[in-house]
Design a protein around this nucleic acid. Structure first.
Lengths: 209, 209
DNA sequence: ACCTGAACACCGTTCAAGT
DNA sequence: ACCTGAACACCGTTCAAGT
């Protein structure tokens, strides 16, 4: 039933190599060398590159099912869940990139769907409305993590911004802010806050009634 | 000064091939074959794979500098810009994927930065605040486009959702909604609306005073 | 200035063969 | 059941050589 014994250590080594040198540097041959084994042996245990990556993504999904949450109110717990998920995705940047590249990103919605749904139900948000809010939050978390990865790596390349801004532009502070590196945490929090604002309003109404 | 004469048609052919069969199917050798020329000739005109992709991304940036806008109020024009940009990015899905893969996604912010800044200034939003709002909007547009591409392609793979939902879950409508395919337009609009809500409120205040 | 073929150093994957 | 080496069909890129 269960997979052959050797599969787990192979996946472990693969995850370590990817975490270390990135996805591009990862090859089946390098992995085999790392394990002190012939390339073809990997094919027997875990299948080819595709299967291997799928298995790694599956692992990420399992990890994400046990994210920590805290918060006194339902909205706080939703925000907490969103932040934990984002943190985990950024910690597993390379794995996230693999999942994205292989069009598995929507699967990342699943592990915390039910927990979000439960919190939304507490706020009286159910049915199609709940589905929309849930997806909006998930999209925000996951897509901003996907972007941030690419952005942070790309920051090195763009030392010199050819300054499309003319000197005539009056708002010097804005120009200065846009030319300094993006604070992705702040942008994420701003968007999360905007998404949750209607929920907070609804919760307050509930307290009034 | 300008690039050699042959560069443009090569880039055209490359863009066409990528649009047709996707990035993965694109190889230097296939491009050469398409052009009826030796592979090595491409290297002379546009450089290697890296340079070629960079040039294609640069083209996308130029196109994006002339996005259409409409709307009577500043907020409407911001929303309109966001929607035009998203539409263009989705139309150029493969190019977007290339830009993302090569960590050039933050560059996609630049072409419409000034136009957004001008609209925000009309709302009285300037300085670091304006920078934050601007980036939040841009992040929403671009990251959701990046995600959608991956999601739509990935939709084929996930015919069967192993239904993590127990039959005991009371909200049948929610479960049904989550099991039907995501309406990315709706999710995008929901997020955009949430991001612009504070701006609308501010504009209304301004009308009152 | 432009284009070529040959060659190099890699890939992922298959498969028959070993133990 | 597990592991191997040889081989195949690809890559991107370089470079000396042609015109």
């Amino acid at each position: 039933m269960t997979e052959s014994v050797g599969a787990v250590p192979i996946l472990d080594a693969a995850a370590r190599l990817i975490e270390l040198d990135g996805v591009d540097a990862f090859t089946m041959r390098r992995l085999a060398q790392e394990l002190g084994v012939a390339v073809t042996s990997i094919y027997w245990h875990v299948g080819g590159r595709d299967k291997l990556f799928d298995s790694l993504v599956e692992r990420l999904l399992n990890e994400m099912a046990h994210l920590p949450v805290e918060g006194a109110t339902a909205v706080d717990r939703i925000a907490s869940l969103a932040r934990s998920q984002r943190k985990m995705l950024i910690d597993r940047q390379h794995l996230l990139a693999i999942a994205h590249e292989r069009d598995r990103t929507p699967k990342l919605f699943l592990p915390i769907q039910q927990r979000l749904a439960a919190e939304l139900a507490q706020l009286g948000i159910i049915g199609a409305d709940a589905a929309l809010v849930l997806r909006a939050v998930q999209m925000h978390v996951i897509s901003s993590a996907v972007m941030q990865f690419s952005a942070v790596r790309g920051a090195k390349h763009e030392e010199e911004d050819p300054s499309l801004w003319t000197d005539a532009w009056p708002d010097r502070e804005l120009v200065a802010a846009l030319q300094s590196p993006t604070d992705y945490d702040a942008v994420f929090e701003y968007g999360l806050n905007a998404l949750l604002a209607p929920l907070r309003a609804r919760a307050d109404e509930g307290a009034d009634g």
